[in-house]
């Protein structure tokens, strides 16, 4: 009911988010708002808690404290079922692709569809799979196993699997890490295309400056568990703050 875009002002609304693992206090009061259709790039040092942040957003990690509203739903309060329903509208690309080793590319893409038949009513699974693969330009890989794919192909297939449910929000965990600059740029462009085509909002976690510049309408730097600085890429780039500066050198 309240998944109607009118009833919530922002797709993601995070206030004062805290998350620790034992004595390791990873997130210490993080704030973030993502508007409908907006791409936010999040940068931060390795181990600063970027992956933890988006895992909290999708409910894979429980949060300790704070407010976390995604697509109008209060994530920490959702039942298992409601969480599943929410996840049908959220795409998540894992840092290591996380393709299912024992399944072909086709089966990998069909996997998210099997539990959400009502959402994709009126479409044939086959068509959705083909469309998603065409979007990432890998239709010819449909019957290959993940072990037969290169690193860049894996990232693209993972991207296809992420978008196959036509999510309203997409969370990318380092979509370009470990790729050569050319492939990385292709993937960044693909992310922008997907944003346009599906009208989806997204959070892009990245180390890669080029990726942050191409994909992000806005850039957030995560440091000490807080959003250290926010702004347009060009604005942030010009800042003289030493912490910010260290990302651009």
């Amino acid at each position: 009911m309240n998944s109607d875009p009118q009833t919530y002002s922002s797709v993601v609304s995070i206030r004062n988010l805290h998350k620790s693992f034992g004595s390791n206090h990873v997130l210490r009061g993080f704030h973030l708002d993502v508007a409908a259709g907006e791409n936010v790039a999040v940068m931060g040092k390795s181990g600063s808690g970027k992956s933890v942040l988006i895992k909290c957003i999708i409910g894979l990690e429980p949060i300790d404290e704070g407010q976390l509203i995604v697509l109008g739903k209060d994530v920490p309060k959702l039942s298992v079922r409601e969480l599943d329903e929410l996840r049908a509208d959220v795409g998540f690309q894992f840092q290591g692709s996380a393709l299912y080793d024992s399944m072909t590319v086709r089966e990998n893409l069909e996997f998210p569809l099997r539990r959400h038949l009502e959402k994709i009513k009126g479409y044939r699974a086959e068509d959705l799979v083909k469309e998603a693969l065409e979007n990432v330009g890998l239709l010819n890989a449909i019957d290959l196993l993940p072990s037969e794919l290169s690193g860049g192909m894996k990232k693209r297939i993972a991207l296809a699997r992420t978008i196959i449910m036509r999510p309203k929000l997409i969370l990318y965990d380092e979509p370009t890490s470990g790729l050569d600059p050319i492939t990385a740029r292709e993937i960044s462009r693909l992310i922008v295309d997907i944003q346009k085509q599906y009208q989806a909002a997204s959070v892009v976690i990245t180390h890669d400056l080029a990726c942050a510049r191409i994909t992000g309408n806005r850039l957030v730097i995560l440091s000490d568990g807080k959003n250290y600085i926010e702004g347009k890429y060009e604005e942030v780039e010009r800042m003289t703050d030493p912490v910010v500066h260290s990302f651009f050198t």
Partner: peptide, 20 residues
């Protein structure tokens, strides 16, 4: 070994995220 490697490579998390 199969489940451990699925766990390490986040395939188990990926299943959870896709509603299974």
């Amino acid at each position: 070994a199969e489940l451990a490697s699925m766990k390490v490579t986040e395939q188990i998390d990926a299943m959870e995220v896709s509603g299974t």
